Lab assay of single mutants.
Amino acid sequence: MGFKLLSKLLVYLTASIMAIASPLAFSVDSSGEYPTVSEIPVGEVRLYQIADGVWSHIATQSFDGAVYPSNGLIVRDGDELLLIDTAWGAKNTAALLAEIEKQIGLPVTRAVSTHFHDDRVGGVDVLRAAGVATYASPSTRRLAEVEGNEIPTHSLEGLSSSGDAVRFGPVELFYPGAAHSTDNLIVYVPSASVLYGGCAIYELSRTSAGNVADADLAEWPTSIERIQQHYPEAQFVIPGHGLPGGLDLLKHTTNVVKAHTNRSVVE
């Protein structure tokens, strides 16, 4: 069995187990497998329904001669939608809004960016022009300005110390501490036991640490421990890039980060 097929099978099995364990909360999309990078042309966006009122959005972007996937989250909030992270750029984010209108038909009224990198804030200006209120932590807003990236308009308070959590509509926002970046936030959907790890969490097929220019490698494993301790009931975990899975993604990420750190020390 090929690795790609095995990865998709694991996603399907995880979703099936969740649907059985929580039949009222989960209505997993039966329309197909989780979209992969090879299936999404740059400039297009796919939506994948995880649970009743919960979707991931998947886009792709060219970077350094390669094409990478990027995940975000959409959560229903009454007759409105909360968006977590842009679709990595203005063109993708405009396509995301169009796809949401086509498939869901509810307005996106608020959006949260989970850290300051372009795959999370690139497209904020498109959201703002569409009347979406954009939010991020003060740290993310400051770092985005320093980096020359787009800056969300509103500040999220109460997320300055490791372990801080605040309720934001249908989700809980959690600051686990520094990891992929010093400002990275985690998003949890309690009604569906869905954990969105953003770039602080890796997919299972990833074996290298990737972009760690703004990471705190020493603190990252401790931050992941905080996530595990705060959300032990999480059933569906979405990484910032690639295929979702279960809580095993947290341990896998820790292993990859520690291996990278150990290699760096040896070198």
Rank of each mutant, 00 (worst) to 15 (best):
A213H: 11
F168P: 04
S137A: 08
K102S: 14
Q229V: 12
R46D: 07
L47M: 15
L83C: 01
Y196C: 04
H252F: 02
V124P: 03
S70G: 01
V194P: 02
S137Y: 03
G123Y: 04
V166R: 11
V126S: 06
A192E: 11
E145K: 14
T109Q: 09
D118L: 06
F63E: 13
I186C: 01
A51V: 13
S137C: 04
L143E: 06
R206A: 15
T153V: 13
F168M: 10
D118K: 04
H260K: 11
S160H: 13
E219D: 08
L10R: 09
A192C: 05
G123R: 04
S7I: 08
D64I: 07
T153A: 12
D164K: 12
G198K: 02
S56L: 15
V212A: 09
A234D: 01
H115V: 00
V45C: 01
A192V: 13
P244H: 09
R110V: 13
A51K: 06
Q229Y: 12
E219I: 10
L24S: 13
L204A: 14
D214S: 07
P107K: 15
D164M: 13
T134A: 05
P232D: 07
Q103S: 14
V189K: 00
D248W: 07
S22F: 07
G72Q: 00
A133Y: 12
H241L: 02
L97M: 08
H260Q: 09
V108T: 06
A98V: 11
M1V: 06
D77R: 03
G123F: 02
D248L: 09
V256T: 05
E147Q: 11
R167M: 11
F3N: 15
S16P: 10
V265R: 11
H154I: 12
S38A: 11
L81I: 12
L96N: 01
G210P: 05
F168S: 04
P35G: 14
H180K: 02
Y12H: 08
L159T: 04
I20G: 15
K258A: 11
L6D: 12
V124A: 08
V11W: 06
F168Y: 07
T134R: 01
T36W: 15
I50Q: 05
G32R: 08
S30L: 12
N92T: 05
K91D: 15
N262K: 13
R110W: 12
L250H: 04
W55A: 01
A218N: 12
V237G: 02
W88F: 01
G163Y: 07
S70L: 00
H241R: 03
V112Q: 04
K258P: 06
Y135V: 01
A133C: 06
Y202V: 15
S193E: 13
A218F: 10
L24Q: 13
L96T: 00
T140V: 03
V171W: 03
V212Q: 10
I84T: 02
H180Q: 05
N149R: 12
H230S: 12
A15I: 14
R226T: 07
G123C: 05
V45E: 03
V112Y: 04
Q235C: 08
S155D: 12
L82S: 03
V189L: 07
K102T: 12
S155T: 13
P239C: 01
E219K: 08
V146P: 06
V121C: 00
W220T: 00
L204D: 14
T109G: 12
S160N: 13
L143Q: 10
G89I: 02
F116K: 01
S62C: 05
